[in-house]
Amino acid sequence: MQRLVILGVAHSDAHAVANHLIAMQLREYGFTVVNLGVCTPLADFAAALEANPTAEAVVIGSLNGHAYADLADLPALRAAGRLRCPVVLGGNLTVGSHKSAGGIERLRGLGVDHILENPFELPMVLDLIREAATAGRVAAGV
């Protein structure tokens, strides 16, 4: 089955180049990429997931240091039953207020499932996510 991921850049962030590089990389790995592009509100990620329910993950890039603010609605969306697939966050998360391990912990506290420091890790992380999901389905007898 064709593997599919939803990709986009956080709401306040207009950096297009890294976004496209990741999209190219994932396509090279054989993924279908639904790329929502720059300045994407969290709700748009949720809507894209509803339109593409087979997506293995939502991958959000953030280069401008405002990842926490841009993802602040994640708990509320999940509480409403949306955006329930794994969320992977990558980019320059260590700039500004996120320099500390505490910053990373805060993002995890919002419900971010995987935090990438290096974009090259992304395919491996997606493989781990799929293995975990398969294991989960096996365990559930699906």
Binding site: L21, Q25, E28, P119, P123
Partner: peptide, 13 residues
């Protein structure tokens, strides 16, 4: 590899 590919594009940029 796909990784090498992305490195090459980055190097070209």
């Amino acid at each position: 590899s796909p990784d090498r590919f992305i490195q090459a594009v980055t190097a070209d940029i």
